[in-house]
Design a binder for these strands. Structure first.
Lengths: 105, 105
DNA sequence: ATCACCTGCAACTCGATAGTTGCATAGCAT
DNA sequence: ATGCTATGCAACTATCGAGTTGCAGGTGAT
């Protein structure tokens, strides 16, 4: 995956409310309505957040009868982390190389 | 570090312009003015972005005479990646445990 | 000393988005 | 069939943030 698709994931993860939703989902799959009972925001707001999270693949909708439960995809977070780590290491490598050139080694 | 400090980092990384700034800095430290010559935004906009990035520790200001150059701290990105990976793995672990209980194993 | 250049601060515009309320729709249960 | 509950869609508000212009203050060089 390219960094172009990486940025929206970070944008999605850059919101406290979404993390509280993810934290709640960490205790088991839940629907927007169920989450709304535990969080201080309305169901519609949560539904929007879930849509954002689903869009970037951090969360996955699962139909159960008439309700739609959401599941956290921790593997996606780890995959994103792996890409970020690669970027960080690459930058370290390049700057180290530049530093060496600057020092005339 | 807690996830409370993690969120602002993701918010900072959830912007394309900031990534273009980071990419430019990857070719060597540079000041806001220098970056403004290479990017399609004004110096002040870049200065704001650099302030955001510095605030979360992704970038570091270095005074060189009358100018302020910025350096990317790739290690910070890797550290953030490590924390995100830990969160992702923890979620996978918890959901796997819940699944086992649900299946009566 | 003066000029050129870089940084810093403030005020403003504007688009995106978090959040709300209201209503319509659809599926389960009795 | 009817009522309860869940989702979906739409319109609206308000706040936040990205970007701009303008100007003041500092620091280096000649």
């Amino acid at each position: 995956m390219s960094t172009a698709t990486l940025v929206p994931v970070f944008a999605a993860l850059g919101d406290e409310t979404r993390w509280s939703i993810l934290a709640a989902l960490g205790e088991g799959d839940a629907s927007a309505s169920a989450l709304a009972e535990r969080l201080p925001v309305t169901r519609q707001a949560i539904a929007k957040h879930l849509a954002v999270l689903a869009e970037v693949g951090v969360v996955e909708p699962v139909r159960v009868g008439r309700e739609v439960r959401y599941r956290v995809l921790g593997s996606e977070l780890s995959a994103t982390a792996a890409r970020l780590d690669a970027v960080g290491r690459e930058w370290e490598r390049r700057l180290a190389a530049i530093k060496e050139i600057a020092e005339g080694l």
